[in-house]
Write a protein that binds this DNA or RNA. Sequence first.
DNA 1: CGTTTGGTTGAAATGTGTCAAACTTTGTGG
DNA 2: CCACAAAGTTTGACACATTTCAACCAAACG
Lengths: 250, 250
Amino acid sequence: MSLSTTTADNHPLIRHLASVAVLSEDEKQALLTLPMQIVELSKDQEIVREGDRPGRSCLILEGVACTFKMTGDGKRQILAFNIAGDVPDLLSLHLKVLDCSLGTVTSCRVAFIQHAAIRDLCERYHGIASALWRMTLIDAAIFREWMMNIGQRSAFRRVAHLLCETLVRMKAVGLARDYTCETGLTQRELADATGITGVHLNRTLQQLRSDGLISLKGGTLQVLNWQALTIAGDFDPAYLHLKDPSLEPV
Amino acid sequence: MSLSTTTADNHPLIRHLASVAVLSEDEKQALLTLPMQIVELSKDQEIVREGDRPGRSCLILEGVACTFKMTGDGKRQILAFNIAGDVPDLLSLHLKVLDCSLGTVTSCRVAFIQHAAIRDLCERYHGIASALWRMTLIDAAIFREWMMNIGQRSAFRRVAHLLCETLVRMKAVGLARDYTCETGLTQRELADATGITGVHLNRTLQQLRSDGLISLKGGTLQVLNWQALTIAGDFDPAYLHLKDPSLEPV
DNA sequence: CGTTTGGTTGAAATGTGTCAAACTTTGTGG
DNA sequence: CCACAAAGTTTGACACATTTCAACCAAACG
């Protein structure tokens, strides 16, 4: 019963795919045979950069990464936080040159998978192709929700919404217990993801804390009042398209 | 030589797909055989709504539509403008319940295509499946760029960026001549797409006009100084992943 | 321990939002 | 084809959320 046994059900990718689609046992076993190069990365490392033409994709096994873009005058917009089971640059399978960058937020264990291997698997297992499709489309759905978040909601609601989403997504892959999860995010990163200033994010967090909604210290998020937080954040998890909504808190 | 002859090269969908991927003659012909129900819609009509579970997708043939979401307190974020050749809800092929709505901006001619017909075509023509994939991924790339636009750029740059994108996309499907295109967009819609207020958008447009960058009247956009506009908007068309960059103005 | 990184605070500046009215254009029925 | 209504645009004055700048503090770290 070693800690490192890789059975289908504790493999991050399988866990993630299973949370958004149905996979047969065959397909799960096939996924386990994917050849991958495992790499340990420290925090704040670039994995791929806008403009690259990678021949492989990156699966996050452990830790938190983020997808981001920089404006011409050096401001960073974080487009997504990527957690265990995510393949943030799966799109490079069809779009040769990347239009955004990917980097670690915390130290990470990642697996690089050659495009050829993914293509091969997709041809042999239609269900896997379909699940990967779904995963990509859900990523896009999350982009849309973030756009609305950033474009239309106040800083207070924006931050509340992001925290709701983070908890639900981490819970869906088994990274949250009760209402607590280790996000590893700094205030700077939360700010760049919500499109507000670091200073203002700090003040917004203080309000969330003093309203008794959350506790957040050293990257560890604890939601103290889930229902109130969802209301504050105007949060409805439908856009996450989870197969089993009971994975959500409450 | 009737106006309504539908040969492969003036069909909006084929034109769009051909602008982002390579299609064989066979594949173009196959696309022409897709059974579709053509419908004329007046402006400001809802096509599908968030929460729907459609069994078909909607191809825009003529006119402008938009994808959008509403916040809990009734504010609208426009997520994308959809022009001839777009299939904004293609995602419903894999994601049963829609997480955003689709409506017309101007009067439109649209074609509804049953999911079964699309699936069938994709199985028989791998290149079509691949082109549709690419189209969807490019839509997501545009979402990402919009996120950065809304989250990190000033109102002035945001609007300039959106106008640049609009011109390039319309040009790519043959809807712009020189530096002019019929967008049919009102100021309200530009405002909801950039996440600023209608009043402020109006003032921003005035600045763009007085700087000699654009002329915009009754939905008709004319770019007077393309290079200056791209600089103002921090615009780099790489994210549009056009097959043939020479389609861009300049 | 000193150094770095991340978090917190205050005061002042400002870009954008709000509200309300006027103006202009477009569309339409008489 | 006029006249009216509706839709869209423009203006002004003011409010306010968020940014900016700069300093300080606390925790993590080698």
